[in-house]
């Protein structure tokens, strides 16, 4: 039993190694494909968001103050970011049934222009390997993760923006 379990794990890791060597750029992670609802109840496939350019996926919750600081800070610059890089931000709320009703109140109350998706039972969070919120991913136009960061401190948004510029300039060449 134990040997077999070990074998399985060994096998999985071999696969992981192979996938990373030959697969996608950077850390080889692609956005997971799941069906989530937006605040209006429309079903959205996370791997087929319908955006053309790069995408930022940011996991947050109404009870997570650093998450809100991050998204509020980006909100102030969002129009410029969009004009310069064509980026779209998807804010994935991991609020469960207790605080789910507060999501549209907060999002519209502060006036965010992001696509907001609801992940009340943490399925997308689990699939993306998120331990804690905030966790922010930068995806290229093909859905490959090119940068991710599991924290927010003032100034982190500029680091993210630099990676975003690097990505869009790289794609132009």
């Amino acid at each position: 039993m134990k040997k077999l379990a070990l074998l399985l794990i060994g096998f999985t890791f071999t696969l992981a190694a192979v996938a990373q060597e030959e697969g996608n750029p950077d850390d080889g992670k692609k956005v997971a494909s799941l069906q989530l609802e937006d605040m209006e109840g429309n079903v959205v496939n996370t791997a087929d968001l319908g955006f053309e350019g790069p995408v930022i996926i940011s996991f947050w919750a109404t009870w997570c103050s650093p998450c809100k600081r991050e998204l509020n800070t980006i909100h102030e610059e969002y129009i410029d970011w969009q004009e310069e890089t064509g980026v779209n931000l998807v804010a994935v709320s991991v609020d469960n049934e207790q605080t789910r009703g507060r999501v549209p109140v907060y999002v519209n109350g502060v006036g965010w222009d992001y696509l907001v998706l609801m992940d009340p039972n943490g399925d997308f969070k689990r699939a993306m390997g998120v331990n804690n919120v905030p966790h922010t991913f930068l995806l290229d136009k093909n859905g490959n993760v090119v940068y991710s960061h599991n924290n927010y401190a003032s100034g982190d948004e500029e680091e993210l923006y630099e990676h975003l510029l690097e990505l869009t300039e790289g794609e132009k060449e």
Binding site: L8, F11, T12, L15, A16, V18, A19, Q20, E22, G23, N24, G28, K29, K30, A32, A127, M128, G129
Partner: peptide, 15 residues
Amino acid sequence: LSTGAMSQGNNGTIT
């Protein structure tokens, strides 16, 4: 897992 990997002809994704 093995057949999954083989039949698809690629290595899939690990996260």
